[in-house]
Design a binder for these strands. Structure first.
Lengths: 243, 243
DNA sequence: ACAAAAGTGTTACACGTACACCCATGA
DNA sequence: TCATGGGTGTACGTGTAACACTTTTGT
């Protein structure tokens, strides 16, 4: 930030009404995505109090006075899901004047991806109101949360094409068909099976396990893991993931 | 934003220390890019007061209590450059605890692109300290502004490949060689002349003028304009610009 | 006539797409 | 042995990269 050095020297705090400039609240909101093998889902809270009582809301909280924004988001995620090491990316900040009826609050929106099976909310906290909601059938959302969600989904669809973050939504071991179905669901497209496999395997990012599916009534598929270390190494040599 | 409905019902403003949560300052900073035909440049302020007196800083200001963040950024740009209709994109928010020595200030960073020839700063304002600086030779920067600049440049390099925003940096009429040189400078690469032309022209986004360069000591090149309306139309039909 | 940069055509090759086919398992 | 999805090979067309060539101006 750079404050006007001359006509409005607010950076030396001798502006006449300087205290009026330090009356903002800052919140973080986090759009949490998951995938259960069928649908892409978001974790939403049903609001229990007015304003917007009964509406769906993106989980979030006010940032504490001496707390980092990322720290605040991780705190919200921990309380909500019990998880600490999840993919987290800053999305966009919404700073409209009238976005919150109770005061001037700017919100820094994040989105995160997690393996839905790891989700294990704290009992008896506000997080118990959280619901995994398929992204096709969202209800009415509080505040400007629909706008935030739309931005998050668009960003996810873009990001998933250029970074190998789809794996964050899958269990540690998965089949290529799982992966393909995830991408098809996320991007609303269809891929040719053979070509999808060739493309993914050619990237050399997957570790083939010596295991296969069990108890399926067809030929069992091989299981794979995402090789994060390999991706790091390839990235340094100029490799770029692309769907 | 969604405030804890249960243990910390801050959204009803009955949290014990609620006023401590509304003590943030919010600023906007705008990384302004230009191109003079040779170098890509940024518009930077030399700070006249401590802290960081004499350091280079990204122009910005505190957001007024009843002002939108975008409005604040447009105000800064207007004061700085005299321009009102410039390309503007939100970049990222920097909300670290100790980023400003004089208080808790979160900054929403933007970047903008403008035709350097249109730049016409207000005389006798803080903007007269602004300098176009080639991006290769930046000095030491105030606060966390180097970090902000790096993020802006990275975003610009990414964005310019997937949206036709390079034209924002060129005069209304330009040659294909101008365009190619801009991209080469911006992305630190070289393109094959023939292939670059074919690719750009095949997109059908340029309007060929019936004019050519004057007073060059070689064959004069044809001038083109970017056809924004055509781009809109093509976008709706699923067209995606790609370098 | 020459230098310098505009502007074009040709070819080789890599890559994506489409599609046909075989394989392994449970019922 | 049949249904079901796993898994693979090939052939074709499109797009990209490399490069040689022609054109038009000023000096």
């Amino acid at each position: 930030m750079s404050l006007n050095p001359d006509p409005n020297p607010v950076d030396t705090l001798d502006h006449p009404h300087i205290q009026e400039y330090f009356a903002f609240g800052i919140s973080v909101d986090c759009v949490v995505f998951g995938y259960d093998g069928i649908d892409v889902k978001v974790l939403l809270i049903e609001r229990g109090t007015d304003p917007f009582k009964g509406y769906q809301a993106i989980p979030g909280d006010l940032v504490h006075p001496t707390e980092d924004a990322v720290t605040a988001t991780e705190r919200v995620l921990k309380d909500l899901t019990g998880l600490t090491n999840v993919y987290l990316e800053q999305l966009q900040t919404f700073a409209g004047v009238d976005r919150h009826p109770l005061g001037r609050v700017a919100t820094i929106a994040y989105f995160s991806l997690l393996k839905i099976g790891d989700y294990n909310p704290k009992p008896s906290s506000w997080a118990t109101d959280a619901q995994w909601t398929p992204i096709q059938d969202l209800g009415e959302m509080a505040f400007d949360h629909k706008e935030i969600f739309d931005a998050a989904l668009e960003r996810l669809q873009m990001r998933v094409r250029q970074k190998p973050i789809g794996f964050e939504l899958l269990p540690a071991e998965f089949t290529l068909a799982d992966l393909q179905h995830l991408y098809e669901t996320l991007l609303n497209t269809q891929f040719d099976k053979a070509n999808f496999r060739k493309k993914i395997l050619a990237m050399d990012l997957l570790l083939a396990m010596d295991k296969t599916q069990k108890a399926v009534r067809h030929r069992p598929a091989r299981l794979y893991q995402f090789d994060a270390a390999r991706y790091e190494a390839l990235s340094k040599r100029g490799f770029h993931f692309e769907l």
